[in-house]
Design a protein around this nucleic acid. Structure first.
Lengths: 380, 380
DNA sequence: CGATCACCCTGAAACGATTCAGAAGCCGCA
DNA sequence: TGCGGCTTCTGAATCGTTTCAGGGTGATCG
């Protein structure tokens, strides 16, 4: 006969205390060690007894060793904390983040590690509510073996909280900290290549669509003061790269603007603003392909041809960007996830892991071309 | 003076045993209970002593109560397991899934619950490797207070493993189980409305683009045998809805095809196949907006006008679908996440939660119209 | 002045498991 | 018979907390 429905045989479900290893041991008249061994080291008891133990467990509704207690005793949770410096929805909505998180997960999954998502909660609508609720709570209280930190500002409380835990930690695209290993890409180099490409095509007035610059979200033109204190390394490095390219051309003007969210909509709106206030702009440097997509839409809605009337360069080289024929800076997003996974595994194994900087590469496609012959004539 | 760098003051980092609450207590000559209270119940000791405790903790490099031990003692982990029946990358890549997961996360986040992502690992490339590695391991060993199950087949080992844990569980878009509460949408009704809409426009030969039908992925035309044993409730219900609409019209033919992945590419390829093998098809019912997007692309590449030459209906009503002017079945994706969050919170609080079925609604936009006057003439 | 109460603090028992160092029994070998 | 070695099983310590049931104080009240 098939075994009777095991779960909670007598009484109502989840009535009374739960069944423990000791209950099983008692029911069978063996020691708890034996029951534990039945689950963890089959070679330590006879096959016969093991079967009897397992059967008794089923009969009693014992669902196996409690993971918590096991972790405590073993000193290991097999969980990795992935902290994401923004509300989780953005991670799901941002293709680059999604790609990266997916590849990280795949990399560690093979080692039986699970991923605990620790996202920055939404900024509370009212400041008072924000004040009395500590966003670092989850990070400080997470039962994990190590951390991966993605997309936080340098001065983020979240990042600080992670570092304070003193667990093996991998930082992604972040300023180096001695307590953690950093894995990133050559943001500045890629950005510089993108800007240089435009300059060598003859562009002299460039718009820049920036990703978020600091924890306080802001939208619109970036003042020099704000540019001086960018706290997201990704943004600061890319901006620096753009600027570096212009050093050889003092006559070039750069108009950085900041988006609140990394969405095509935001990119579109900002591009419209940019072109309205600076009609001499002939090319737009975007810190992400998603923003570039918005810039393309803006151009279309203004009746501007790309690349004849407006050049657009992205960053990331998302899977979809090839079909948009977008000139962009490629970065090894998937590979980065892989490396991060490897690094944290190495760290968890007790070995030191070296920091890694992955290369970026300009991919010239169809959204860039020399500017129209006489842009000056179109002034104002 | 500022407090000295606290982490691991003496010796190398993570050398020797870690600092525990007891060490702090001993260093200060107080009881462990007092130290514990300093962290958890400030009102239980004098402010002065509390400060001294906290300072001593800093000096010793104690980073706060171990979350694991605390969870064990408290009987609560404040972690929710979200199991997703496919590799996590798909969740990030699928807008509907991303939207849903994002809204669930937001709903529980306010309650200081974290989300442990438990995804089905990739099918191993070689069957032997798949055999010796149990995909349910993570689910059985996860330290969580409850589960949310999304996107698994009815006969999924993952689902079974979750149910066996006997924890509070919310099933999403799933067949009802007595041990868990189910929250879903009216898939069949929505699908029926979509099909009825096409029929009333005069269409008689319909293509159907199905989402995955069972755990074994397959692509191409769906045989009646396969249709009879669909194990994803979402797919089976929608298919049922489509079929139900055709009952009043015996002359109508329905050509279901199955995609491997829910991507525009897959939808495009399948639509091309479908139209090639069944030239009389004048409309395509898609089980997702993402697939519908592929159908639109296919039409474009064939030079077919939408809706004049081909009608297309989607499912989901994603944020982007409005701008595509896609006729589709709306479902309250965000609201569903909200409800799921509420339900699991209720369950965790010890109260029973009722199952919920949310409504769907046909949204007629511009991708559907009556078929061309004489479709028969175009035969072959 | 004795009783009461609030305030701080402590001892010790859980929480549910893993694991180490044997013990008991049995076999074979010398 | 004695002894080492193997298999199988057990006792007890331990992981790092939380929390309950008090135990001392000193102040307040009648």
């Amino acid at each position: 006969m098939p075994p009777a429905k095991p779960s909670t045989a007598p009484g109502s479900p989840r009535a009374g205390g739960r069944v423990t290893l000791r209950d099983v041991a008692r029911a069978l008249g063996v020691s708890v060690a034996t029951v534990s061994n039945a689950y963890n080291r089959p070679d330590q008891l006879s096959a016969d007894l093991r079967q009897r133990v397992l059967q008794a467990a089923r009969d009693l509704g014992y669902t196996g060793p409690d993971p918590l207690a096991r972790s405590l005793r073993r000193g290991r949770t097999d969980v990795l904390g992935v902290v994401y410096g923004a509300p989780l929805e953005y991670a799901f909505a941002d293709p680059a983040a999604a790609l990266f998180l997916g590849s990280v997960t795949r990399a560690v999954q093979g080692q039986d590690l699970n991923v605990l998502l620790l996202a920055s909660p939404h900024a509370a609508p009212c400041p008072s509510a924000a004040a009395n609720h500590d966003p670092t709570g989850p990070v400080r209280g997470a039962s994990v073996d190590g951390f991966i930190v993605y997309c936080t500002a340098e001065d983020s409380p979240l990042l600080r909280a992670v570092l304070e835990r003193g667990l093996p930690t991998v930082l992604v695209d972040q300023e180096c900290h001695e307590e953690a290993v950093n894995i990133g890409i050559d943001d500045a180099g890629g950005a510089q290549a993108a800007a240089t490409h435009l300059l060598s095509l003859g562009h002299r007035h460039l718009g820049v669509l920036c990703l978020q610059l600091s924890e306080q979200r802001a939208s619109g033109p970036v003042s020099p003061a704000r540019e001086a204190q960018v706290s997201y390394r990704t943004s600061s490095q890319r901006l620096r790269g753009y600027r570096a390219a212009t050093h050889a051309h003092p006559e070039v003007t750069l108009h950085p603007t900041e988006v609140i969210h990394n969405t095509p909509q935001a990119g579109e709106a900002l591009t419209l603003d940019l072109l309205r206030s600076h009609p001499d702009i002939t090319a737009v440097l975007c810190m992400s392909d998603v923003l570039a997509q918005g810039a393309l839409r803006a151009a279309a809605s203004l009746g501007l041809r790309v690349p004849e009337d407006l050049s657009v360069v992205g960053f990331d080289d998302l899977p979809g960007s090839e079909s948009l024929n977008l000139t962009t800076v490629w970065q090894p997003t998937g590979d980065k996830g892989e490396q991060v996974g490897q690094a944290i595994l190495t760290l968890l194994a007790g070995h030191p892991a070296p920091p890694v900087t992955l290369p970026t590469r300009l991919v010239v496609r169809g959204t860039t071309a020399p500017p129209a012959p006489q842009p000056q004539a179109a002034r104002d």
